[in-house]
Amino acid sequence: MGSRVDEEYDYLFKIVLIGDSGVGKSNLLSRFTRNEFNLESKSTIGVEFATKSIQAEGKTIKAQIWDTAGQERYRAITSAYYRGAVGALLVYDISKHPTFENVERWLKELRDHAEANIVVMLVGNKSDLRHLRAVETDEAMAFSEQHNLAFIETSALDASGVDTAFQRILTEIYRLMSRRNMQAEEAAAGSSLSAGQTISLSDGGKKKKGCCA
């Protein structure tokens, strides 16, 4: 791996932030990792990266989060970053219905390029824009149930739901991974996971970090 361990953590999970342009992905990331919100943030070109560690069920979990450009044609560049990701926050803007309609296309994108067992959370961002709401919570919730996704509404601006969103997806990945790992151990009575590795849900194995094509 070649990386120094600068801080202690038990697990390292790679997460991607995807969704249409302008839904607030970069601000969700900066709110979560640095508690910052930038009203005049610039459009993301390519990919951006940040990390943060959280506590879940007594373990320290470090999230390696990749923020991606939202415009459709950028998928040719950003989809390489789905590889090895164990979680995805699929973000739409509650005040712009088309960004919700495109969620299906993003799901297909994940099916095509990401690990089969990636945990996906649907995130309705900009919940502070109550007077401009175009996507009802019920509608999004029904959609997420139908597609077996976790769901939450957030506001990167007033910070509501942001920590919860990341906390929930990371905890869920951890639980899933532990369960899988346990099953694997029972089945093979074999190798256990070593701490400090990026976990892939599909094989429970070790992944190189920062991989890309």
Binding site: G2, K42, S43, I45, G46, V47, F49, K209, G210, C211
Partner: peptide, 22 residues
């Protein structure tokens, strides 16, 4: 290479926008 840093991770916006974006 050792750290798995690829040029796409840092230089995409430099090159694509000829440095204008940042």
């Amino acid at each position: 290479d050792k750290e798995n840093i690829h040029v796409t991770m840092y230089a995409t916006q430099w090159l694509l926008t000829q440095y204008t974006s940042s």
